[in-house]
Design a protein around this nucleic acid. Structure first.
Lengths: 191, 191
DNA sequence: TAGGTGATGACAGCCGCTGACATGAGGCGT
DNA sequence: ACGCCTCATGTCAGCGGCTGTCATCACCTA
């Protein structure tokens, strides 16, 4: 008999998503999530800094995908080329198999303002990090911040479209379309 | 003798800002804020849906400024012209006299992640609302959302610059500069 | 003068979250 | 084989955010 099972964090995350989806975020207590996998509330809060984090922890790899994309871009790339490279790399993070899981997760987030706040915060932190790498590559302000925020905006819009009912294009395809739209918008073209 | 003083909400907001700035957000309890103006915690939470809101309530007029700007734009304006009109109108909301107050308030927000989350959420809601009016004026998706998010991004970057130490340009001036930068970025110009 | 209105107070209680300390299985050195 | 150390977990007490419920009582209105 082992004293504790491995993968505690992941089991808690799975259980939490299921309970949130089934019963609602606010109607589910941290104690219930913990007990559903045989643990106590105290252990839950040792793994996650707060109740919302159980849905968000583990996105470091997405951040890395963005940064890797930027790092892979050739020297002398324009800011927009860096944005494009980051988006392409980020898209790899969401293959078709993840679409259903992403839909479920997003439906939970969309139903609770507190979770939406956290999501925005994470995206915002991502934009800040991407902006840092742009600056590290010599992009001056305010271009670096604008480019990074634009990258995240395009990502967000594209992701929302990617999980829409009936959508079957890849995230990368959608991103290219949305980015092109942003370009023509900024160029002042009429709607 | 009046039973209650008028302006309860405003007194609570002033007291809260002062306490937060002086002692820190987390170190200040809702009870303390309420008591500092002669009220109880219960009354505090009748005026504000949660502790953070005491710093954010009353921004409806900023939202209106954005929307009024859009409404004032001529028929047939391009999305970028709508963005420009919204930004110009929003800038009126922050005359030079408000700069110091904005600085104090922002310094409090910048020191607490929970407050940053709320701020992002408000900006995000603003982007959504602006996007709605763009759509109502016939801008299709995803251009409407992209334009609205870009407007908020430019506003955010400009506002941050506006309250920087030593900055003395008007918010409207800064916004024009930042918006121009975004245009040339999207046009693919090198940094 | 009676009754209605509406902001506030009082109180109990849930839940998120934390610090402090105890427990016990597995690994490791001797 | 023995004892020690590590470290994820459990237990417990407690604070603060937030809510529902009911009472209070100045002011207004008929």
């Amino acid at each position: 008999m082992v004293r504790w099972q491995p993968g505690t964090r992941e089991r808690l995350q799975e259980a939490a998503l299921e309970l949130f989806a089934h019963r609602g975020y606010e109607q589910t207590t941290a104690t219930e999530i913990a007990q559903s996998v045989g643990l106590t509330e105290r252990t839950f809060f040792r793994h996650f800094s707060d109740k919302r984090e159980v849905l968000f922890q583990g996105q470091e790899r997405l951040v890395e995908a963005f940064l890797d994309g930027v790092a892979a871009a050739p020297d002398g790339a324009t800011p927009m080329e860096l944005v494009s490279a980051a988006l392409e790399s980020a898209a790899d993070f969401f293959p078709g198999e993840r679409r259903d899981h992403a839909r479920l997760r997003q439906s939970v987030i969309d139903q609770n303002p507190a979770l939406q706040e956290r999501e925005r915060h994470k995206l915002s932190a991502l934009a800040t990090t991407v902006g840092d790498t742009f600056r590290a590559r010599g992009v001056p302000e305010p271009a670096a911040t604008l480019a990074a925020e634009s990258a995240i905006t395009v990502f967000g819009v594209s992701f929302t479209q990617w999980i829409r009912d009936g959508e079957d294009r890849s995230l990368a395809d959608i991103e290219r379309t949305v980015l092109a739209e942003l370009r023509s918008l900024a160029a002042g073209e009429a709607a």
